[in-house]
């Protein structure tokens, strides 16, 4: 099942409320982020269509025009009603949002995949092990 252009545009508004543009952060409806997101929706298209239908029902077809506070109320209601179906959308939005280079940089994280550059992990304080080293063996003999 493929979503129609109209459904994709409707979902853009929903995605922009799941992770909104506020507090200086981008929203999931940002053009670049949503282009990435909308290209990965086909396998959950039935879930997306159900969410759009439920949102339209709760918002009397005017969801996009409602103030953000009211949109959030509607989304919480739909979330409660659809459970895992709604979670599928939240999961996909979140996974696409938190791989955008600008989002990661703004959070102080290095954009891009872990491989091949790898990451730095400090050794940590090995003196913490001293009291455990002093312990006698306590495994059960047979």
């Amino acid at each position: 099942m493929a979503l129609t252009d109209q459904q994709i545009e409707a979902f853009r508004t929903i995605a922009g409320r799941i992770i909104p543009a506020e507090d200086g952060a981008l929203g999931a409806d940002d053009a670049t982020i949503f282009a990435d997101l909308s290209s990965s929706l086909n396998d959950i298209a039935p879930a997306i269509a159900s969410i759009i239908d439920a949102v339209n029902l709760e918002g009397f077809g005017r969801f996009a025009q409602l103030p953000s506070v009211e949109q959030d109320v509607i989304l919480r209601k739909v979330q409660g009603a659809l459970g895992m179906t709604f979670w599928a959308a939240v999961q996909r939005v979140t996974l696409c949002y938190y791989r955008d280079d600008r989002v990661l940089s703004a959070l102080g994280l290095r954009p891009g995949p872990p491989f091949p550059r790898g990451q730095v992990l400090e050794q940590g304080d090995w003196s913490l092990l001293d009291p455990v080293k002093a312990r006698q063996p306590f495994w059960r003999e047979t």
Binding site: R17, I19, P20, E22, D23, Q71, L75, T94, R99
Partner: peptide, 26 residues
């Protein structure tokens, strides 16, 4: 990673979707 942490926090209700998401997740 960041997305996994966000999903875990959203799933457990510690970070909301919608308003307040970014502040809570940071």
């Amino acid at each position: 990673g960041p997305a996994s942490q966000a999903l875990g926090a959203i799933g457990s209700g510690r970070v909301p979707i919608g308003s307040g998401h970014h502040k809570a997740f940071r």
